[in-house]
Design a protein around this nucleic acid. Sequence first.
DNA 1: AAGAATTGCAACCGCGACGTG
DNA 2: ACACGTCGCGGTTGCAATTCT
Length: 334
Amino acid sequence: MGRQPCCDKVGLKKGPWTAEEDKRLINFILTNGQCCWRAVPKLAGLLRCGKSCRLRWTNYLRPDLKRGLLSEYEEKMVIDLHAQLGNRWSKIASHLPGRTDNEIKNHWNTHIKKKLKKMGIDPLSHKPLSHKPLVPTNATNNQTQNQPIEEQQLQPIQKEQQNQQQPLTININDTKFESKIEDIEKQETSIESSTIIEVKEKDDITIIPSFDTMELMDGFCIDEVPMIEPNEIIVSNTSSSTSSSSSSNSTNFLEDLHDLLDFEWTNNNNKEEDNANNMAFWDDDFISSLNLLINDDDYGVNNGKRNQEFDAHAPLSNNSRMVTDSESWAYDLF
DNA sequence: AAGAATTGCAACCGCGACGTG
DNA sequence: ACACGTCGCGGTTGCAATTCT
């Protein structure tokens, strides 16, 4: 018996999303929150499968997303985290606020991989390419070789902590990288000397970068990012009745957004966090982008292609969302 | 200038995990 | 214990944009 398709594909649309579809999805999620993706397309009046809606939202429409190239710090973190976690992009993404697993995966495959190879680093093992693989002498060794790096590291981590080893960071822009490769070879286990310390807790893994993430992000911490939850998405009643309609017009949609911005984001878990979160979740840049988004004249002129949506090829400074690197994004919000 | 090759990224696909009845 | 539905993840693809020849 074959697996049932995730959704009835007959009559469902595929391919790039149009402005109208984006508008409907955003409007629906703002009004109803994220729940039951399977039901979303029907309720939102979209001819898409729920999976497609979820992807579109999480990878592109989510308001807390950063756009644009990864910063040097972010790249460094990705490399470190990849050394620890392997291709577990969602885990890696969870340590990079505003970045999606897809984005990181793409960036890894298109940029970082090449950079590492150029530097003589094997992107898979994070070891120097010239580094001859150890010939396993027994099954245990063999197993270790095939184990995810993360698992291989769990044991040496504590040892590493005890030894207070100097953290080895890979600066991919470092022209003296070759000398670092030598250092890595000397240290035998280059990955183990990475900057990330993991503590295994049940099945979950806590990643503790040895470099100060808060410092790197200029005080920006993932824990402070107000990730959207269904119960957190609250649109005032005055507008929700109109906006909940899948055929809502742009004006109502904008009103919803502004109502939303007037809403005080609260987090009941922590009063201090309350203060931090009592702010407009989406900054003016995002609103202006949404203005673009919902303005059919400006948006999706070319069949809704994203490059037209946010003008990815314009200078970054012209692009309200894409310009928000980690620092400016954080400062804009806080 | 034009065609070919390459790049970058959004979106899709299939699978596994998990929850529920 | 099992079947089923849903969701999330990682790998892959398709195609527009860009670069090269």
